[in-house]
Nucleic acid binder design. Structure first.
Lengths: 198, 198
DNA sequence: GTCTATATAAAGATAGAC
DNA sequence: GTCTATCTTTATATAGAC
């Protein structure tokens, strides 16, 4: 990708983030050099430092942006009965994550490469998301429509199961995302002990 | 750890693998230098090459050893009814993985750092393990005791849910491993549509 | 078998010209 | 804003002494 000297701040900034996202997801943060990111963008390594103070900030900004968007799009308003809220959560989680495989991969794989302060901030966001699901389960248990022995364990089990979709799902594969959502909803609904509607 | 010059092949070999295991799990393969492994063992970097041809082989041997042990200890014999076999699988999976947090972490996080040929070999072993669980689900569906819409999806969903335990379980924490096994078995049993025994 | 020393390559980050 | 050039550090791996 040949590039000439000049000013392209508005274009280059997003391209740096995009290149870092793709390369971090593909090879891992520690295995990606600033030179590799620069090459993907089409600039020299030194130019990257106009857009990020260092490599760590690049990783942190990607993860924080992802978690912030996740929390802003999730519906934890509490509207509706617990079974409907759980169904909406399952569908949202699968679709949101299927749309952003690289961001999801980084968010789960690169936590240990965050500086301690950055790690704490990302963990707090993740915790808020878990709390959103746990509130649904607790409300369902309170209403007697879910069989919840330990809401925290059930929260983590459901999220792990749903996020696992990203390890194998590919658009255009054997199953449509609609089918995936349907089957996971069947499993989650049964796992929480909700009655199967007929 | 002060060390002097001399021959310690029988001792040093396992210590190299153990140090690599611990450091790869903690910092990630790409972020761990051969010098760091040597320092953990208490030798100089050059001495490591008496025990491994290179860093990649160190990673591959750890992962292959883990997967081979997993397959050798799992009971995929087909003895018993599908519900009992599934219960045994759930308990085995949770306990085996809880006993080996570092190996499990590496096996899931460092796949992309394997050379292509090594990756193919590990993937084949992982597939064999998945096939073992899928056979249980298929037998249960055949007997009409499980409600299985797609055995492959259900296999991956169960494994993802169970392996997720490793992200939070710590010995001496709020819950004993017995309690964890019991609660996950409740969820899995319901997720596959099996009747809850009373 | 382990050491010291080193060959060779690549990393993160910065300086100064344009 | 981007370039080229470079400082400084660190990496994998090997050679040869003991």
């Amino acid at each position: 990708m040949a590039r000439t000297t000049g000013s392209h701040a508005d274009i280059t900034g997003p391209r740096v983030r995009q290149a870092a996202l793709r390369l971090f997801a593909q090879k891992g943060y520690a295995a990606v050099s600033m030179r590799a990111i620069a090459a993907e963008v089409g600039v020299q390594a030194g130019a990257l430092y106009n857009y990020t103070p260092d490599k760590q900030s690049l990783l942190f900004d990607l993860m924080r942006g992802h978690m912030t968007e996740l929390l802003s799009e999730a519906d934890f308003s509490g509207a509706g009965n617990p079974l409907d809220r759980l169904r909406r959560f399952v569908e949202f989680h699968i679709r949101f994550h299927a749309d952003r495989p690289d961001e999801v991969f980084i968010a789960y794989m690169e936590l240990r490469n965050l500086d301690p302060a950055n790690f704490a901030e990302i963990e707090a966001l993740r915790r808020r998301y878990e709390d959103g699901l746990e509130a649904i389960l607790k409300d369902g248990a309170r209403d007697g429509v879910f069989a919840v022995e330990d809401s925290k364990i059930m929260t983590l089990a459901i999220i792990a199961m749903l996020t696992g979709v990203n390890t194998w799902f590919r658009t255009g594969g054997r199953l449509s995302l609609d089918q995936v959502v349907g089957q996971y909803w069947d499993m989650v609904r049964r796992a929480v002990g909700a009655q199967v509607e007929r």
